[in-house]
Every structure is written in structure tokens, then in C-alpha cells.
């Protein structure tokens, strides 16, 4: 890895008695897209907001572009752009005015045309912010984050609450930024987002970083189990299937039964015997390579959206 542009060391943050971060450490190289993956309340936003300079850590250290986010002031703000998870703009502000306003605050030439074109907002240039759809607002947020051409981009749940089509549009924008070698730290609880967009992923849960690597490395790490997806004529109790040979986990996911097995052949033999004995019928069976979701379940014992 080239010299890190973001360094996080033993980061800690408490909200009253709640320990939101319990010693998180990682480094991000320049030009890397790094994902923080975890369920709600895992500590992703606390981490990213400390790195944005919006929150003060209770322990540990964070450096971005060699600067301390909490004390470096305007010099730091010019180096980083961000899409916040919960933010807004005044309803009566026009799209082009918003870009000009922030360009002016950063002291860069206020020419919104390029950004409007890049984010497909030309037709909305005179529209009020209050009249934009969720996807348009998010595209404007991305445009504003890039207005001063920052070295580092922080994206906190950039596609949360958006419909699948808009989400894919945002993915395309992030993929373009990745191709431009922009350093990006993004948080997400969407597995496919992390797999599709990130060079490396840190899995975070209960304020602790529990796994770190490329999506492929993480999946290989979970190769100890194989995912077997079943459709049955009638549902079986989790307990019955969990007891089958070599099964480590059994869940109902979107109408399908998902088993994790350390020895798929033995599990399948046991499954067929069990179904015959119980008079049930196997309608489909599929063996799939483990996904990041499986790895997450394996690491935390629960699903991302639990």
C-alpha cells in the first residue's frame, strides 16, 4: 500500500454510557475506495464524522491528508468533501445557486455548469431544492461535495433510502470517481454496494472493527462454510435443519431456507433423508459461493439489517 492518506488509530467515542467506538484502527491509501460495512448503530457514522471534523473523539487519533480533522480548520476543509447522512439545504435555494454558494465559500470559481452536467442536473439548474426528488438531492449533495475538488471524499450512507434505480445511478457516479483515483471512504449497510464499489472493506459492529480486507479476501476467509439455498414444499423448523450434519447456521431469507455447511455433501445427504422421513419435498437446491452477507453473519451472528 502507498503511504496512507487517512490514518485511524484506536479511535474511541462515547455518548454518555454508550460506547459507540471501542478502539477502531485502519489506514486508507490515496486513490482507494474504502467501505465501512455494518448495521445501524455499529459506529460507522461516528467514525466518518470524526474524520470529517464534525465530532471529537474521546480517545485515539485520526489524520486525514496529514491533518488533524478537529484542529486544522479551513486548510482541512478544502482537502475533504462529504455527503452527510442527515443534512439538507433551504427549500427555496435553486440548484445552481447552491453550487455557486458553496463554490464561493471555498473560494473557487463558481461555475456550476460542469458539475450540473456531470451529475445530470442541467434540467434542474433553476429548480428549488425543496422540489427535487430524493435521488436528485443526493446527486446535488455529491456535486457539492466535489465543488472544491477535494482529495478525499466521505460518503455516509450515500444511497440510503433511495429506490434501486437511483441507487444504481449513484453507484455509477462513485464508480467514475473511483476510476479517477479519488480517495473515498464510504459507509454502507448494503452488501452489494460494498462488494461492487469498494477496493477494501472494514466490517464494523458494536464499535469494533471485526474484519478488514478486499471483498474477495473477506469471502475467502469465510470459505470454511458453503451456502446452500433451498426451497421446500412446506416450511421446516429452523431447529430441525440446524441439527443436520455439518450445518453451522440456518435462516429463512426472503422465502428461501439458507443453510451454511462446513461439508456440503454430508449436509445434502442428511437433508434428503430428513425430508423423506418428514414427508416434505425439495423443490429447489442451489449451492452458492459465500457472499459478504454470509461473512457478516459468520462474524457477528446476525444479518446486516437485523
Amino acid at each position: 500500500m502507498t503511504s496512507p492518506i487517512i490514518q485511524v488509530q484506536d479511535l474511541r467515542k462515547n455518548y454518555g454510557a454508550v460506547e459507540a467506538l471501542r478502539g477502531v484502527s485502519f489506514e486508507i491509501a490515496e486513490g482507494e475506495v474504502f467501505g465501512l460495512l455494518g448495521p445501524n448503530g455499529a459506529g460507522k457514522t461516528s467514525t466518518i464524522e470524526i474524520l470529517e471534523g464534525m465530532r471529537t473523539p474521546d480517545g485515539g487519533s485520526a489524520r486525514v491528508c496529514g491533518l488533524d480533522p478537529q484542529t486544522s480548520g479551513d486548510e482541512f476543509k478544502r482537502q475533504v468533501g462529504a455527503v452527510l447522512q442527515s443534512t439538507s439545504l433551504p427549500d427555496k435555494l435553486r440548484v445552481s445557486e447552491a453550487i455557486q454558494l458553496f463554490a464561493s465559500l471555498y473560494g473557487v470559481s463558481p461555475s456550476p455548469d460542469h458539475l450540473l452536467a456531470r451529475f445530470g442536473l442541467e434540467e434542474k439548474r433553476d429548480a428549488f431544492y425543496g422540489k427535487l426528488s430524493g435521488g436528485q438531492k443526493q446527486r446535488l449533495a455529491l456535486a457539492l461535495a466535489l465543488v472544491q475538488q477535494p482529495r478525499v471524499l466521505f460518503l455516509d450512507e450515500p444511497t440510503a433510502g433511495l429506490d434501486p434505480q437511483v441507487r444504481r445511478e449513484i453507484y455509477d457516479v462513485i464508480a467514475e470517481l473511483r476510476a479517477e483515483k479519488k480517495t473515498i471512504l464510504m459507509t454502507t449497510h448494503y452488501i452489494e454496494e460494498a462488494e461492487r464499489l469498494c477496493d477494501r472493506v472494514a466490517v464494523i459492529d458494536h464499535g469494533r472493527l471485526i474484519a478488514l480486507g478486499t471483498p474477495r479476501e473477506l469471502k475467502e476467509r469465510g470459505a470454511g462454510t458453503t451456502r446452500i439455498e433451498l426451497t421446500l414444499a412446506r416450511p421446516e423448523s429452523d431447529g430441525a435443519l440446524r441439527g443436520l450434519d455439518s450445518v453451522t447456521d440456518c435462516r429463512e431469507i426472503e422465502g428461501r431456507t439458507v443453510l451454511h455447511s462446513t461439508r456440503p455433501p454430508a449436509t445434502i445427504v442428511a437433508l434428503v433423508k430428513h425430508l423423506e422421513a418428514s414427508g416434505n419435498e425439495l423443490k429447489s437446491l442451489e449451492i452458492v459461493p459465500p457472499s459478504l452477507e454470509d461473512i457478516f453473519i459468520e462474524l457477528t451472528g446476525r444479518r446486516l439489517r437485523d
Partner: peptide, 16 residues
Amino acid sequence: IFREQGILRRFRLAPA
């Protein structure tokens, strides 16, 4: 209103 709607925190990111 700016604070409650999260508008101020957007400005906080900028050099203002």
C-alpha cells in the same frame, strides 16, 4: 430551523 433541519451542519463542512 436551519439547525433542526441539518442545514447548519452542511455549512459546517465548508470554510464558514
